[in-house]
Amino acid sequence: MNKLRKQYLPFVRAGVQNLITYRMNFLGFIIGGLIYCFVMYYLWKSVFMASGGDTFMNFTMSDMVLYLFLSNVAGEITFSSVSNDIAEEIKDGSIAMRLIKPVNMDLSYLATELGGTAMRTVTFAFPVIIGLEIYRYVTLGIVMFNPINLLLFLLSIVLAYLVAFRVNLCFGFMAFYVKNLWGMGILKNSIINFLSGSLIPLAFMPDGLRTVLEYMPFASMSYTPVMIYMGKYDTSEIIFRLGIQAVWAIIIYGISKLIWVGAIRKLSVQGG
């Protein structure tokens, strides 16, 4: 354990420093995300007005606000730049340096990311959650905060993170085959946004599609933790959903290993 800490702590530290160095970029992305939430907020508000009822497909307006901002929070916590980082390293050949180090490659990426993730959680996710609880108290007049749901949310978001990290890793390996990584990034984000329910709650999708999407790995990346926090699942369903997340975390882990074994054969680094 001590050895592990000694090996990977420098990577964690590098991750934190990276975020602090590029803090303005970080701020830009966070504000961009919040602007998007507000656009969606007004859009949903007018949808609620047009539908004429207090609830829209079993969601109240305050549910909707919670859902929008929590999806954003889940997106920030599970955010991973590993697909870009690994792709850049494959392109410029610096991945060779990483491969010759006596550390596990995946773990070294993960450690770098954990630094940034911790920063994002503390500086962004928690303040937004506190803000949401204040919003709920002001609009509904009662304290809706449920510490058990928060704890389950945190557990679920850890699993979500593991799935998201591996999915991003797989996307990063695409750099062995495709050069337009920026386009791939757009594609990845829009697919994940749609399939994970962060664009539109999966609960609003047509029944057949919803069931399929709920079992796909993307739901594990955002939808499950958000629904757990909102108290939309009962105890047995929570256990079931957490189980699905864990299963996906393992399957995606296996897939990423398989892709890597195939991809590493294609690696050729020029110069150095």
Partner: peptide
């Protein structure tokens, strides 16, 4: 060419 296709298809799907 493949790059162009990836880029254009990405925006299309988005």
């Amino acid at each position: 060419k493949a790059d162009f296709l990836t880029g254009a298809v990405s925006f299309l799907i988005d």
